[in-house]
Amino acid sequence: MEAQLFHIFRNTPLGRETLFQSTYFCSKTGAAINIYVPEFTKFLMYFENDVIQINLDESYLTAPGSALEHATEVVMQKNIKPKFIKPKHFTASTLPDIPTGFDFMCCPRSISDLSSKIGIGYIGPRVRRIVKSARFPVLITSPVYKEWSSITVFFGGSANAVNALKLGFRIKRATKMPLYIFTQAEKGHKKTCKDVIKHENLEKEMEQLADRWQIFEKGKFEENLYKVPHDSLVVLGAYGHGFIKDIVFGSKMEKIQSTVSNNLLIVGPNYTATV
């Protein structure tokens, strides 16, 4: 069974960049691409314990006549056969239900700043909720098409970071690209991270698959982000602190995404990984 990536197509030049990015991801990891060409500006995703309404902005409905053709054209360039998703069920007549049994989902970054929409300049609450409920990781694409040739995992020792690490191994296996692991370690944290890896029985993989484990014991997190290769796929766990903490300290996830313009793959707590 191939992995399935879910992509919402936007029939604009920007949407084309995003689709290129998804296609690149698929061609590297061997995943199949499932494209949804929206007919309405909203749709629902029913997860295990949550239902999320996703509101798209009007640009997603641009030129519906040529959308299919454009999408096929882009995907075929990488010799991948596109699969189009037609919603089968509707909660209300203009509110289709989109299945959620995918392995990846692509959410674009865009210049629009409406926080409730998908495809926002920062990882908004909606994408965050998807990450929280979904079993699949979310691919947040770089603003324009950007190929990557290595994988960087941010590993801080939390449960989600372990998931991110597992996902990193999985992608490494699929792509055979170099895998770097970054850890921002404060005092004594280095040992905790190693303990976590031991506890999760990941030592063997760590040895075989990780090409470099870089532990920063000095310097600020933001400064060290400069060390992330510019052409690397960044895999990170969702840092769930809760609403208040995010406001006071700022979310680490947002910090990363605003600092590096790489493609990001964000893993949530429900990701059931097989190493």
Partner: peptide, 26 residues
């Protein structure tokens, strides 16, 4: 709130029969 018109009872029955009663907060 980005919702459709109507009185909503069918939506409740729909979510009960298909999605184990999952409904949006709004």
């Amino acid at each position: 709130v980005n919702e459709g018109a109507g009185h909503g009872v069918p939506e409740v029955v729909y979510s009960v029969s298909r999605y184990g009663g999952l409904m949006r907060f709004r």
